[in-house]
Design a protein around this nucleic acid. Structure first.
Length: 717
DNA sequence: AAGATAGTCGTTTTT
DNA sequence: CGACTATCTT
């Protein structure tokens, strides 16, 4: 194939990255600089110019979505789908390895993946077993503790207790957790990575095989890798393989869950002779937006240093709007959305981004009020929904009886008279005999050490599961799913839940049957169930519901990473909210907030609106936040402040006295007032009546603010 | 075993 | 404030 086709459409930095023949390349790809493009073209370069076999290439991404996109774009560019290439997520690839080498990894052949929900349940159970006080040892924090150590590559036996009794207890729980997973053949997300790493370390022949095979490694979103992921990669790369890492230190926003931005710096040290290529030309945004982004991120020390530029137009200035409360902020945003719609932009080309999910409510209310269709991204994954998890638990038990997480979940769902007492007895026996709950049930029934009623109920349950197991051997995946839903009575159980909930649950369950019908197993029918269960555990499932209606997009800044929109509204750009209160004190965390802001700004292609509220109801309390420091970091020349209505030329002097009765606020223009947070100031303007009245005050310290008179408690002085 | 009630807690989220 | 949970009540 013609080499020019691969390089022609690229700029010189991109070309450099694509065709680099060093053993290690670090591509620092700024937002909108064609990162995925470089990865895809590099793979094409390796295959078609270097003549590398597809099976010598492994490309690792972070999310399933990214992996999917990578595969389809490679196919698009090459017009064929290369066979034997591994393209997947860290977790997906680790899982694939563990399935192939379960014995070497010390796992049972049919090990199951548990998600964080199952994990949390297990931790809670263990805390009860160990009679630990949940207020002192919160399940969530224990889960955090375990996952944190796993992400750092530490098992319970590696953790140092520092002679601290509290830490010692945590380690005990971690140990018990490991034992419980072992006993029931369950593997959590962190465990996938940890085991895959241990597989390299403990089985040199296995490692050697894969080192020989995967001569070319590519990693996307490298700034998001955690300790164990990077360690795993490094071992696989060894001294001889070629590794391409693509990432952006300025877009590292997952430090709080273990991502190590340091891995980027470390890379050049670990792989001597690394060639670093910076992609700084941006193809997404106007120069006005880029100037703002550059200016904000420049406030972070210890960056690797990049500056985005474009040869495009300056574009519109960024709008800054100060709402007097969050409803006013929402109203402003929705008005601008309508403006752009009448200006022939689609609703789906406009996104409202916010720091935390709680902000979406007011925005939604306003969108509903004005009848604008919207779609909220994020939220619960399809396979995380209660009814789906229940149904999948039955499928999991059909596949393997020792799956304790699944067993616990549905032993009494729908209710079948197996109470807590019986389940306690099962758990006790399982622990004593070091076996699964299913085997423990068999034992206890044989013993006759349960009440007659419990035995009957338990037997009914086990018969049901065995029937499902039999069905799984003969039926297609889809028929099995239907069978399980009927036999277990889950359909009826969820259907009778109150209000629209029941209806929604039934629809989701039907959607699950749909998913089984559309599922295309890689192997033959005999492995279809296992493959489907793995997908349910590792893949979010399509969230396609109303993808085709033209709707405004709402999402957190975190979930916006990697996306772009012609119009972006960045709502709630206030101190304490963004940067978030919890991150203001520590410099490291503040820098991550700033990177998040950089991510937000760089999502915008043409128009960017920054909005905040001077008064905001937050946790049931009125709060007064100053405009975010990030706004002040943007050069004035990029920003245009939107004036509130026509309050301009009314002269403000002590002599003027508009009757207070007009506004019911008891305030007079030009009057000096005292506010218990902002201190002293002068009333500049009054708008509205009664409880809606709002007052603009120019505070000596804090500058001008709009306040709701009813809440502001202004005192005349 | 469902329904009421008190109590808690409150960024960001993928696998 | 309000969503969620754990515990108590019938």
């Amino acid at each position: 194939m013609d080499v020019s086709r691969i390089l022609d459409s690229l700029n010189s930095a991109q070309r450099e990255a694509v065709s680099c023949d060093k053993k290690s390349v670090l591509v620092l790809a700024g937002a909108g600089s064609g990162k995925t493009r470089v990865l895809v073209h590099r793979i094409a370069w390796l295959l078609q110019v270097q003549g590398v076999s597809p099976s010598a290439i492994m490309s690792v991404t972070f999310t399933n979505k990214a992996a999917k996109e990578m595969r389809s774009r490679i196919g698009e560019l090459l017009q064929i789908t290369p066979q034997g290439m591994w393209v997947g997520t860290f977790h997906g690839i680790a899982h694939r390895l563990l399935k192939a080498h379960w014995q070497d990894a010390g796992l049972p052949e049919n090990f199951q993946i548990i998600d964080s929900d199952d994990q949390l349940r297990m931790v809670k159970r263990l805390l009860k077993e160990h009679e630990l006080d949940e207020t002192r040892f919160s399940p969530k924090s224990i889960q955090w503790y375990i996952n944190g150590h796993k992400d750092e590559g530490r098992r319970a036996k590696h953790v140092d207790h520092h002679d601290d009794p509290y830490e010692k207890t945590l380690i005990q729980v971690y140990l018990a957790y490991e034992a419980a997973c072992e006993r029931s053949g369950q593997v959590d997300f962190g465990e996938l990575l940890l085991r895959a790493h241990e597989l390299w370390l403990n089985k040199p022949t296995v490692l050697n095989h894969y080192q020989q095979r995967f001569k070319y490694l590519l990693v996307d979103e490298f700034q998001d890798t955690n300790t164990i992921q990077y360690a795993w990669l490094r071992v696989l790369a060894g001294n001889n393989n070629t590794i391409t890492a693509v990432g952006d230190d300025d877009q590292s926003i997952y430090g709080w869950r273990g991502a190590k931005i340091e891995n980027i710096q470390q890379f050049s040290e670990d792989f001597p002779g690394t060639e670093t290529v910076k992609l700084e030309q941006n193809y997404r945004s106007t120069s006005c937006i880029l100037d703002a982004a550059n200016a904000v991120i420049a406030n972070n020390p210890s960056r690797l240093g990049k500056e985005l530029w474009t040869d495009g137009e300056a574009g519109e200035p960024i709008s800054l709007y100060a709402g007097f409360n969050e409803q006013d902020e929402a109203r402003y945003i929705v008005e601008r959305i309508e403006d752009h719609v009448s200006d022939h932009l689609l609703r789906s080309e406009q996104a409202i981004l916010y720091r935390s999910n709680a902000q979406s409510r007011v925005l939604e209310e306003e969108l509903i009020r004005t009848g604008i269709p919207y779609r909220i991204y994020g939220g619960q994954r399809f396979y995380d929904r209660l009814e789906i998890k229940n149904a999948v638990a039955y499928l999991r038990l059909s596949y393997g009886r020792d799956d304790d997480a699944a067993f616990e979940r549905v032993i009494n769902t729908p209710t079948r008279g197996i109470g807590n007492k019986t389940v306690e007895a099962l758990r006790l026996r399982a622990r004593e005999s070091n076996t699964s709950l299913w085997r423990a049930s068999e034992q206890l029934i044989a013993d006759g050490s349960l009440t007659k009623r419990a035995i009957t109920a338990l037997q009914n349950f086990m018969t049901l599961i065995n029937d499902c197991g039999e069905a799984s051997k003969t039926l297609s995946l889809e028929d099995l799913a239907s069978f399980v839903l009927e036999a277990s009575d889950l359909m009826a159980f969820h259907g009778k839940e109150t209000g629209e909930k029941g209806q929604a649950r039934i629809e989701n369950l039907q959607e699950l049957v749909n998913a089984t019908r559309q599922f295309e197993p890689e192997g033959d029918d005999s492995t279809a169930l296992r493959e489907f269960l793995d997908t349910a555990a590792l893949d979010a499932g399509e969230q396609q519901a109303d993808e085709y209606t033209d709707a405004v997009q709402l999402m957190t800044l975190h979930s916006a990473k990697g996306l772009e929109f012609p119009v972006v509204y960045l709502a709630g750009i206030e101190e304490n909210l963004f940067p978030h209160k919890m991150s203001i004190e520590e410099p490291g965390r503040l820098e991550e907030e700033r990177r998040l802001c950089y991510v937000g700004i760089t999502r915008a292609m043409k128009y960017l609106y920054l909005t905040y509220a001077e008064t905001r109801r937050w946790y049931g309390q009125e709060s007064y936040n100053a405009v975010s420091r990030f706004v002040r970091e943007i050069p004035d020349t990029c920003i245009q402040e939107v004036r509130v209505k026509a309050n301009i030329s009314r002269p403000v002097s002590a002599g003027m006295s508009y009757a207070s009765s007009d506004h019911d606020t008891g305030l007079i223009l030009g009057q000096r007032v005292m506010h218990n947070i902002f201190g002293e100031g002068v009333v500049l303007n009054i708008e509205g009546q009664g409880s809606n009245a709002r007052v603009q005050v120019n505070f000596d310290q804090e500058g001008s603010k709009w306040l709701v008179a009813a809440y502001a408690n202004l005192e005349s002085i």
